[in-house]
């Protein structure tokens, strides 16, 4: 078993928290994990990506080879589209529907949606609305992660445990909000 995921978004959208939850979940399930992330300049409102690989055998490359990503998990639709050359032929995109426009020549929303839907199996989610229903828009990324978890394998309980571990220092309210966001994301049907 080997699974490759690209997690994509814009600096500040919580890409690395999403990756961390999958990492811990995979490690606690006894799997090999490699996760290459982007730091530094890219954090300032630029594109951010993490390459995440989990496997039951040794993983060599920290970067996912072209054409071998099972899923692109994105917090922003244009960022989802940026990485499609990495996607497997029958790979899946799970992305938040809301655009974050902070650059020149951002594509027209209809064109963008059409591009995403026409080529690839793509699930778009109004993650902000779901996150708000859990108490904070800041949990949008965890909603996306919940929806993506349906495609990643590994028991739901392991994810919940990882969320509890990683958010423990921020208090019970934050933990519960994130569990709510994860669960509602997981239940989401396109």
């Amino acid at each position: 078993m080997q699974k490759n995921y690209i997690i994509a978004g814009v600096g500040g959208q919580g890409i690395l928290s999403m990756a961390a939850i999958i990492d811990v979940t995979a490690m606690n399930s006894g799997l090999y994990v490699k996760q290459a992330e982007v730091h530094g300049m890219s954090q300032r409102g630029g594109s951010v990506e993490a390459h995440l690989r989990i496997s039951d055998t040794e993983i060599f490359s920290d970067i996912i080879p072209l054409g071998e990503a099972d899923c692109i998990i994105a917090t922003e639709p244009m960022e989802a589209l940026r990485y499609i050359p990495f996607l497997k032929e029958h790979g899946t995109i799970i992305t938040a529907s809301k655009s974050l426009i902070n650059c020149a020549n951002y594509p027209d929303k209809e064109v963008l949606d059409k591009e995403l839907q026409s080529k690839i199996h793509c699930i778009t989610i109004d993650a902000d609305a779901i996150a708000l229903s859990c108490g904070s828009i800041k949990t949008s990324n965890i909603v996306i992660l919940g929806a993506a978890s349906n495609y990643l394998g590994i028991d739901e309980a392991q994810y919940i445990q990882a969320i509890k571990t990683l958010f423990a220092s921020k208090g019970t309210d934050i933990v519960n909000m994130n569990i709510c966001a994860f669960s509602k994301g997981r239940e989401y049907k396109n």
């Binding site: 814009v10 600096g11 300049m41 890219s42 954090q43 300032r44 409102g45 630029g46 594109s47 490359s61 970067i63 080879p65 072209l66 054409g67 071998e68 244009m78 960022e79 589209l81 940026r82 499609i84 050359p85 996607l87 497997k88 032929e89 790979g91 902070n102 650059c103 020149a104 020549n105 951002y106 594509p107 064109v111 963008l112 591009e115 080529k119 690839i120």
Partner: peptide
């Protein structure tokens, strides 16, 4: 992996070509 592949005669498949509507998002 792509570059090492090419040096060994292996071309990694691209099933989904880059989309030309995607624009750079530089840091700010």
């Amino acid at each position: 992996p792509k570059l090492l592949g090419e040096s060994l005669g292996i071309t990694l498949p691209v099933h989904h070509a880059s989309s030309d509507i995607v624009v750079p998002r530089p840091p700010q």
